[in-house]
Structure formats: C-alpha cells, structure tokens
Write a protein that binds this DNA or RNA. Structure first.
Lengths: 150, 150
DNA sequence: GTACAGATTTACGTTAACGTAAACGGAAAT
DNA sequence: ATTTCCGTTTACGTTAACGTAAATCTGTAC
C-alpha cells in the first residue's frame, strides 16, 4: 500500500474505538454530519449490532475531511485528496496520473496561499487606518480624505 | 472614507467602463454570475438605458469577490471582507468592532495557512513515495511495504 | 418493569450559488 | 427588411451539505 500514513502509533496495534458522539464532540460537528459522511462512502465504521464503531483510521479520515473543508474544498475534493494516501498503484500509468493530480492540487493550494497573503496584507492596511483614525480621534467629523492630521 | 484603496490610478481620473461580457471574459465567469452578484447587491453598475456599465470600481469588487471565493469564502463573507475597505466609521465603537472583525478574520486565514501548509507537506510525501515506487519499478508486484529496494 | 438517554433509519426541508431556458429589446451588418 | 449579436428580465431547475422531525430500537438505572 505504498506506506499508509496516519497510523498514529501503528506499533501499539491500537484497537481503540469511538462512538459517534465521541467523534462528534471531539470535532465539533453533529452526529448527522458523520452519518452523512458515511452515506457518501467517505468513512466505513464497523458495526456492533446496529451501532457504529469508529476506528482510529475513521477518526483520521474525519480529521482530514474537516481540514479540507476549512480551506474550502468540497467533500468530493476532500476524498480525492484523502484517496491519494492510499493509491491503487501497482500500475505505472496510475502512479504518473496520481503525480499529475498532486501537482495540479499543489497549484491550487499555492494560489490560495497567495490569496490569503494578499488578504492578510489588506486587513493589516485597513487595521492600521482604523488605528490611526482612532488615535487622532477628537470629535465626529466628515471628510477625512485629504485632510491633514489635526 | 478612511482612504479608499484600489483606485488603480485615481490620478488618471479614469472614467473607463466595461460591458458585462468584458468582465465575464476577463474573469472567466458567466454573465449570469455577474448579474447574480448585482441581484445580491454586491455590485451596482451604472446603466446606459437598459444596459449595465461597469466602472473600474465594480471591476475591483468582482476581483475581490473571486479572490474570496478561491479561498472558500461564501459570497456573504466576501462582501463582509470587502466592506471593511469602506467602513462607516466616524464612530469609535464601530472602528473598534471593525478591528475585532479583522482580528477574527485573521485567525481564520492563519488557520487556513496552516492547513494548506500541512496539506502541501502531505502531498510532497505522497509524491515522494510515488517516485520512489516508480524508480524501483520492475514488474507488477504486490506488497511493497517493508520490502528493501531491489 | 419501566423510564430514560443514545443510537438508528427514513424522509422531507433548506440555503447557497449559480445553470438554463423562454421571451423580448436594440443596434449593426447584410 | 431581416438576420445576427449582444443584452435584458423572469422564472424555474439543480447540486451540495447538511438540518430537522418522527418513529423505532436498546442497553442501563432505578
């Protein structure tokens, strides 16, 4: 399997499991959300009778899904990224195509980095203007455009 | 107005305008999208009879909307950010509250930066594994886990 | 036993961000 | 004059990602 990342102490042979509300609480989502992810085939928890039993691996997948969402990926894109961890390799073509996918995903991420940097810089500017405006604050006043500081 | 950014050559007193398809083409979106943004009050192009006339300011707003979208903001969040450029200040409380908003938005952006960095690092790992797997490729083979390089 | 807290399935509802189609207006080219 | 190209309005359709409600099961506390 090309080396499964995220085993989180594979040595411990961890057979720990989580309930659905454990994970919901940990990640600040509803149980509905987690069931929805299962419906979509994004996770496949075990069953103990009727109840779901989540493994550490399920837990990591959820974590990765939420990381994806934080940067604006759709759920579909989230699984695309996650599936890269466990490639159906064996095949040279597939490996090459995976590399292409990775490169393209990287482009997007780098564009996002630039966008975030830009936006942060803008926020800094605005904040600075706010603070200058506050420091020189005396009384309510209109047009501040080209007015010199008092 | 606390100093309007993005005048893009305010000195030139630019009265250039754009048609809807100009901007659609430039930004790679449909005209429907632009009209939709107007419906939502995100831009307010002039009219020449019935037709829309977009100013450089409209153009910048669209640009900022799309930047927001690229990092996963909703349209509502996009205008929240854009509106920071043109605060209804005059009021100390409002300025303080704007600063809070900025700080909170910054937190989110920084979390996104971390998420992107993490994801990029993961992609690098996966790619490296792919390439190692390709370089030692001889014939279709199963378990590569702990196998030494040939 | 039964009440109660959690878990499950089923299924309809909701919001966002457009897509898409229909029907029409005005100017320019043929 | 009529086709051809924008452009416009109106309006219904669509997908994603859950929310929410109702009915059922189930193990544990009392």
């Amino acid at each position: 399997m090309l080396g499964s990342l995220h085993d989180e102490g594979a040595a411990r042979l961890s057979n720990k499991t989580y309930t659905i509300s454990d994970l919901a609480r940990e990640f600040g989502v509803t149980t509905r959300t987690i069931r929805f992810y299962e419906e979509k085939g994004m996770i496949s928890p075990l069953r103990e009778g009727q109840k779901r039993l989540f493994t550490p691996s399920d837990r990591v997948r959820i974590k990765l899904i939420l990381r994806g969402k934080r940067i604006g990926l759709s759920l579909k894109e989230c699984i695309e990224v996650i599936d890269m961890y466990d490639p159906q390799h064996n095949n040279t073509d597939q490996l090459h195509s995976l590399i292409d996918t990775i490169d393209s995903r990287r482009q997007t991420l780098q564009q996002q980095q630039r966008d975030i940097d830009d936006m942060l810089a803008n926020l800094d500017q605005i904040k600075a203007l706010c603070e200058r405006s506050l420091s020189s604050y005396i009384a309510p006043d209109q047009g501040t455009s080209n007015r010199k500081k008092i």
